[in-house]
């Protein structure tokens, strides 16, 4: 092999390296740098080693936020995945209604996060909001600014409203990719509706469901704008999820070292859980 040629090739990679370094590696390293220092102001800082990490990992407030976050993300999956599959199964497969339903289903995905928060803030208000007034009218005491359950369920409902469509669209495309012969063979074999779902449709959805689970998990794990607009993390800290916890620490308290250490831990948690999901789902389809 000719060494000169190999070195020459680096020149072509250089622009990408510069871009990636500028946009990803250097910012990330800055965070790493902050995470091992105590920053008092722009000119005063001390090296503190892994102190922030040890402190963060022992922080009961963080444990509580992480617990809330996990419960919330798994609830999101538990509701959105089955609901998304069910809606996709009900959608028309031919005719003009295909386009109509696809557009209707896709609409929530086009709404920006903070707008969704604002919509729900108004929609769910117990004095003037349609949902709030209706629920209270039915005799259910509901006020998301005061009730812990009301607040938590409202954030969950909001996320379901906003993101179930993504699961629906993925499943719908997965379902359309199943050749007719499979359904015909199942009819010939006398399979029930449930057997068709269990043995024909679900196995062929594993690919899109893997993507749906990963996307919905990562996204909901990083949820920020909607609960921030709706409840501001309250009442108490009922809807304070990890990213809001982080923002409060970094921006409001200007606790940059702690926030940097926490960011890295946060990043590793998402990476680890996504890896577990991915491995479990892809392995189950291989055996």
């Amino acid at each position: 092999m000719d060494r000169t040629q190999n070195n020459y090739a680096w020149l072509f990679v250089l622009p990408v390296l510069v871009l990636v370094a500028f946009s990803a590696i250097i910012p990330l390293m800055t965070v790493v740098n902050y995470s091992v220092q105590d920053v008092l102001d722009a000119n005063t800082r001390f090296f503190v080693g892994d102190e922030w990490y040890r402190e963060i990992l022992r922080d009961p407030q963080l444990h509580a936020a992480l617990g809330r976050q996990l419960v919330f993300s798994f609830s999101v999956l538990a509701v959105q995945i089955p609901l998304g599959i069910a809606i996709a199964l009900c959608m028309p497969t031919r005719g003009i209604w295909v386009a109509v339903t696809l557009v209707l289903v896709a609409l929530p995905l086009l709404v920006p996060w903070n707008v969704v928060g604002t919509i729900w803030q108004l929609f769910a208000r117990s004095d003037i909001g349609l949902l709030g007034v209706t629920l209270n009218g039915l005799g259910i005491e509901y006020n998301y600014t005061r009730g812990r359950w009301a607040a938590w369920l409202t954030v969950l409902a909001m996320d379901v409203w906003h993101w179930t469509s993504l699961v629906v669209l993925l499943c719908y495309s997965g379902l359309r990719a199943i050749p007719d012969a499979y359904y015909q063979a199942a009819r010939i074999d006398g399979a029930s509706r449930w057997a068709v779902f269990r043995h024909v449709q679900l196995p062929r959805l594993t690919g899109v469901l893997t993507i749906a689970v990963l996307l919905r998990f990562m996204d909901s794990f990083m949820i920020y704008a909607e609960p921030f607009v709706l409840t501001g993390g309250g009442p108490g800290s009922t809807t304070t999820f990890l990213s809001q916890f982080l923002t409060t620490m970094a921006v409001a308290q200007f606790d940059i070292g702690r926030a940097a250490a926490f960011s890295l831990i946060y990043f590793l948690i998402i990476l680890a859980i996504s890896w577990v999901f991915y491995t479990v789902i892809t392995r189950s389809t291989k055996i």
């Binding site: 050749p179 012969a181 499979y182 015909q184 063979a185 043995h199 024909v200 196995p203 062929r204």
Partner: peptide, 8 residues
């Protein structure tokens, strides 16, 4: 059918 249909 023409193409194999098995329950995976």
């Amino acid at each position: 059918f023409q193409f194999p249909v098995v329950y995976d």
